[in-house]
Design a protein around this nucleic acid. Structure first.
Lengths: 205, 205
DNA sequence: TAATTTGCCTAAAAGCATTAGGCAAATGTA
DNA sequence: TACATTTGCCTAATGCTTTTAGGCAAATTA
């Protein structure tokens, strides 16, 4: 009987498409087999197991995202770069929700080390060059940006912003304005504020 | 034979504990039945199905979070309130990772409307009173804060911040400093910058 | 063409979700 | 107290997913 021509790569790509269609956690070895019109057991020659499939989809997504990010950053700096990078994540999540979810999969240390994850941190760090932050503030800022990008995209996709007035695109622009302003004027560590105490009641009532 | 005394509430609470122990998406009707030393089918008198169980755990988590948030905000304002609210989310996620994951579950519109979700938005809005923002900036800021809190906690729990130098507590403090500074000095919408263009090459090369 | 490798198959076991129908314990009623 | 009803947990059964073992035929190599 004719062969289906399965390969790990083809399965991974099809898995990514499936994820975008039905959601990453609905991605199942069975569903993938159905899509290739092949028996389930046949996939186990190409994939170690279900977790292996999911990991491969995650790595694919991280790669795609890193490539898009690198393209977007080329030739840009400052707020222009900030906006471009932020939009890469947001647009990718909208175009490929399943892959974006996959990119959030927790990888074990070795796999993570071999993934495109490191490049993402590097690129976020790159856009900070325009803002003249020095360590450790640079790392703080990298983490903040990652948090905002991921948090915003994740809440927006979850429908958390659908309920009220200003549309989410408007908010997104203003959030990027705000981040730009913040990075241009990164505050020093707050000194534990004693002023309210030293006002009316220097040593308490 | 003696009855086990199952109720929907007891099952929900036990489900939440199970989630914290093994992860929210490992929560299964079967595992819960095992925990009560009872046959699986018995749970279906108290739960419509697996999804129902997960939804109930999510609602429980949202309630608990809202209660903690309300307690934390009582009598606080300004940065003090900002920090307190932020720490509620972060601490809850660390103490109850499974419940925190549950709180992220996508609910259908009616369920969401009946949930404590609305109170969360209200409380975030409440801390902005100390910062004198008016609409629509207030909504933008609510969304930004939600994004940072959720994004940071989610990346931190995922181990995304374990790789490099400044420890995550230090970053957390500096992120809160930064948000406070940003809210005290919320920027006007950026005007499309024409300055780089009008400099050397007014109409392009 | 013959030998070997490789790819997809059948078969089977185990776990989870879910429904149908039954018996016994708990509760309400005379 | 005795009886009737409701309620709670049970057994049984179906269907889906995961995963392993072993087989046959197609593709590749010699």
């Amino acid at each position: 009987m004719a062969r289906a021509g399965l390969t790990t790569e083809r399965l991974t790509r099809a898995g990514a498409e499936l994820a975008d269609e039905v959601g990453f956690d609905q991605v199942t070895v069975s569903a993938l087999a159905r899509r290739f019109d092949v028996r389930v057991a046949s996939l186990y020659s190409h994939l170690r197991n279900s977790q292996d499939l999911k990991t491969r989809i995650a790595l694919l997504a991280l790669e795609e995202l890193a490539t898009r990010a690198a393209d977007a950053l080329a030739g840009r700096a400052g707020k222009d770069a900030l906006t471009a990078l932020a939009n890469v994540y947001r647009d990718y999540a909208r175009e490929h929700p399943g892959r974006y979810a996959a990119a959030q999969l927790r990888l074990d240390a070795e796999t993570a080390a071999a993934s495109a994850g490191g490049r993402h941190a590097q690129m976020t760090r790159a856009i900070l060059r325009g803002y003249h932050l020095t360590e450790p503030d640079q790392t703080h800022a990298v983490r903040l940006l990652g948090s905002v990008f991921h948090g915003y995209v994740s809440l927006e996709m979850g429908g958390g912003f659908n309920h009220s007035a200003p549309d989410t695109q408007e908010t997104w622009s203003r959030v990027l304005d705000a981040l730009d302003a913040l990075l241009r004027n990164w505050p020093a560590p707050a000194t534990p504020s004693t002023e309210t105490v030293t006002g009316a009641f220097p040593d308490g009532p």
